[in-house]
C-alpha cells in the first residue's frame, strides 16, 4: 500500500525529501522529467516506508501526502 503519495507535477527536484528520509527510500527519478523540467522525487520502496511524514514536512512545494494504516482496524 502506498503511504507517501507524490504529486510529481509539483516537484522541483530539490531533493530535500531525499535528505530527510530516515529509511533512505526517497529518490529523484532520473529517468523521468516532469512538465516543469525536473526529475521528480518518489518513494522507491513502499514496504519500507514508515509513514513518518519527514519527507512531506521538509518539502517546500507540498508535493507529498502521507497516510498511515489504522492499526485498530
Amino acid at each position: 500500500m502506498k503511504k507517501a503519495t507524490f504529486k510529481t507535477e509539483l516537484c522541483k527536484g530539490c531533493g530535500l525529501c531525499v535528505t530527510a528520509c530516515p529509511k533512505h527510500i526517497v529518490e529523484l527519478d532520473t529517468k523521468s522529467i516532469n512538465a516543469k523540467g525536473y526529475h521528480p522525487a518518489s518513494c522507491t520502496d513502499d514496504d519500507k516506508c514508515i509513514a513518518c511524514g519527514m519527507c512531506a514536512i521538509i518539502c517546500p512545494d507540498v508535493v507529498i501526502t502521507v497516510i498511515k494504516e489504522d492499526k485498530d482496524k
Partner: peptide, 23 residues
C-alpha cells in the same frame, strides 16, 4: 486510515513560483 500529512486547507491549491529548495 490516518492522514499523517496533507496540504493545509488555508493554503491555496496553487503551485509556488519559488525556486527549487527555497524554504
Amino acid at each position: 486510515m490516518n492522514i499523517v500529512f496533507e496540504k493545509p486547507k488555508a493554503l491555496a491549491d496553487v503551485p509556488f513560483h519559488y525556486c527549487p529548495g527555497c524554504t
